[in-house]
Write a protein that binds this DNA or RNA. Structure first.
Lengths: 191, 191
DNA sequence: TTGATTTCTTAATATACCTTATTTTTTTTA
DNA sequence: TAAAAAAAATAAGGTATATTAAGAAATCAA
């Protein structure tokens, strides 16, 4: 199991001794999933939070009339899950799909709760993780409310070039909240 | 200082002994502010996180052409700040305005950091606070991306009736990301 | 390599939402 | 209580974005 990345991700914010590192690593499961498979589907119980060692994933909500809304992407060194349903043991509201074949490290809710008991420092780690996630989402809301589509597109490409280059037009459009046709026309006008 | 509400807010998630409670309370400053005043303005350093004992506040971003985007409201028993700027010691991106005269308890960044050192349990408390905030924002994004204005309005009224009843048309509209005129016409059609 | 499928582009028409302006209603102030 | 100010309603015309549909380009399967 490739553990360097996740350990350095965690040790950015907290310090662990070797025993703690090993205990933490013992709670993880590695999984490899190929493109277009799903690691979570709407309605299934969401039991894991996932760290991305390699590849790209996308979380999206599919509404009753078949329209998609992309909630987030995750690349190497990011965490992804349906947070609300993970925390509350509820059926997932979103699908998480593999955009580019990936290796993930999965941590179950059960093991996470054990981890908090065993190494309380992880409360600090996840506090910071949640702070960052919250601030990102808040900024996205401000932009969704105050910028037209073309500016949101520019911001997205500028902020996440490594994602923007690897996803389809349609995936980009559903992240921005516009149709693929309209995004195509925006791109066309930019030459 | 009225401390019942904030203590019960915290003790929903962690248990404190009397000494810890007193230490925590000693770090707070009480403030009363009347309607239409600001507790934070764009560009000022954002040094405090604020707990609402009474009243209503609104955080909004004012963009360069004078358009407002309401980021959040806070009522009794909620916390409010410009989280990103508070955490990073940066000039605020948003204004926080008093919608209904309020009593708040302010905790400075400096004191919060002391608190984490002194009572590490507060990492758990703020972890949970940030989790809830993140999940709320994520749900809001899904709704902004997938619902037309009229449905977002219905959801808002249904989810936050205590807020929706007390704020102006314009404040509601800038939360939903539409113009007051358009919200007015939505309301008109609902009779 | 070829056909089959998916993705992207283009364009015409349609609609949700915006802008501006005016009037009416409500709230604030004196 | 009246006057002034602010907020809300209404309406006409405009724009950003959606919808539908068709063809072009890219990707995939065999």
């Amino acid at each position: 199991m490739n553990t360097d990345l996740i350990l350095s991700n965690i040790c950015k914010y907290i310090s662990l001794n070797n025993e703690e590192k090993n205990h933490f690593l013992s709670l993880l499961e590695e999984e490899h999933i190929v493109r277009n498979k799903f690691i979570l589907r709407q309605g299934e119980l969401c039991n894991h939070i996932n760290f991305v060692n390699e590849g790209i994933l996308r979380a999206y909500y599919l509404n009753p009339d078949g329209k998609e809304a992309t909630v987030m992407f995750a690349v190497k060194d990011w965490w992804i899950t349906d947070m609300y349903c993970f925390l509350n043991g509820l059926p997932a509201m979103v699908n998480i799909q593999v955009v580019e074949s990936c290796e993930i490290l999965k941590l179950s809710k059960e093991n996470l709760d054990k981890l908090y008991d065993h190494i309380p420092q992880f409360n600090k780690f996840f506090r910071i993780l949640m702070q960052n996630a919250y601030c990102r989402e808040q900024l996205r809301i401000i932009q969704n409310l105050s910028l037209p589509a073309i500016d949101r597109y520019d911001q997205f490409v500028q902020k996440y070039p490594q994602i923007a280059n690897k996803i389809t037009l349609k995936q980009t459009a559903t992240y921005l909240g516009i149709t693929p046709e309209f995004l195509s026309s925006i791109r066309g006008k930019k030459d």
